[in-house]
Amino acid sequence: MGHGHNSRTKQSEGGSNTDLRWIAPESAIDPVCGITVHTNAAKSAVHDGHVFYFCSRECRERFEAAPDTYLNQESATLETGGAVHG
């Protein structure tokens, strides 16, 4: 009978769904420069399980070199309604 490795029914019953797909948002804000970018043409990077989109390779490289710097700025911007206090 086999082990069921190729059985979709077994996967569905076990809670594993191989049909899940990541659908990127249409646009996102570059965390380095603040520009709104269309994700289909943007550079991207994954940090701490989150996907970030960038307007250029340079912004992506800056983010990858010090992501916490930009994430802290982003959090401050969200908490203060747009004003970053430094």
Rank of each mutant, 00 (worst) to 15 (best):
S16E: 07
N40H: 11
A65M: 03
E13T: 13
H5E: 15
S27T: 15
S12A: 08
R62L: 11
H5K: 14
D48W: 03
E13Y: 10
S75T: 10
H85V: 15
C55H: 02
S12M: 12
G81Y: 06
N17V: 06
K10C: 09
L78R: 11
G82N: 07
P25S: 05
A42C: 09
S56I: 06
G4H: 15
K10L: 10
Q73L: 09
N72C: 03
E64D: 12
S56N: 01
D19K: 07
I35N: 08
S12L: 08
S56T: 04
E61Y: 08
A41W: 11
L78G: 07
K10V: 15
V32K: 00
E64M: 09
Y70W: 00
H50K: 09
A66P: 01
S12W: 08
C33A: 01
Q73G: 07
A28D: 06
G86N: 13
G4Q: 07
G2M: 08
T77A: 14
A45G: 03
N6A: 11
S27F: 07
G14A: 15
E13M: 15
S7Y: 10
S12P: 01
L71M: 00
T69N: 03
F52S: 00
H5M: 13
R21Y: 04
A41L: 12
A45V: 05
R8F: 15
N40K: 14
G4D: 05
T9S: 13
T36S: 10
P31M: 02
S7C: 11
H85T: 15
D30Y: 02
E64G: 03
V37R: 12
E79N: 10
E13N: 12
L20D: 12
T69K: 04
Q73I: 11
F63M: 05
C55L: 03
F54A: 03
Y70T: 00
T77S: 13
S44V: 10
S27L: 08
G49L: 02
V84G: 04
Y70D: 00
F54R: 01
V51I: 11
P67C: 01
D30M: 02
H38I: 10
T80W: 12
G15V: 03
I29M: 09
H38L: 15
R60V: 07
S44C: 10
Y70M: 00
P67R: 01
P25R: 06
C59L: 05
P67L: 02
G34N: 03
H50I: 06
G14F: 04
L20G: 08
G81C: 06
T9R: 12
Q73C: 04
E61F: 10
I35Y: 02
V46D: 14
A76S: 08
N6D: 13
N17L: 02
F63P: 05
E74V: 14
N17A: 08
L78D: 07
D30S: 01
V32E: 00
E74C: 05
T18N: 09
S44D: 14
N17C: 14
P31T: 01
A28K: 10
A76W: 03
Y53V: 04
I35G: 04
A76L: 03
L78N: 08
N40L: 11
V32G: 00
C59P: 03
C59E: 04
C33R: 01
A42W: 08
C33G: 05
A45N: 05
L78T: 10
E64R: 04
H47T: 05
K10E: 09
S44Y: 12
G34W: 08
K43N: 14
G81I: 03
G4N: 09
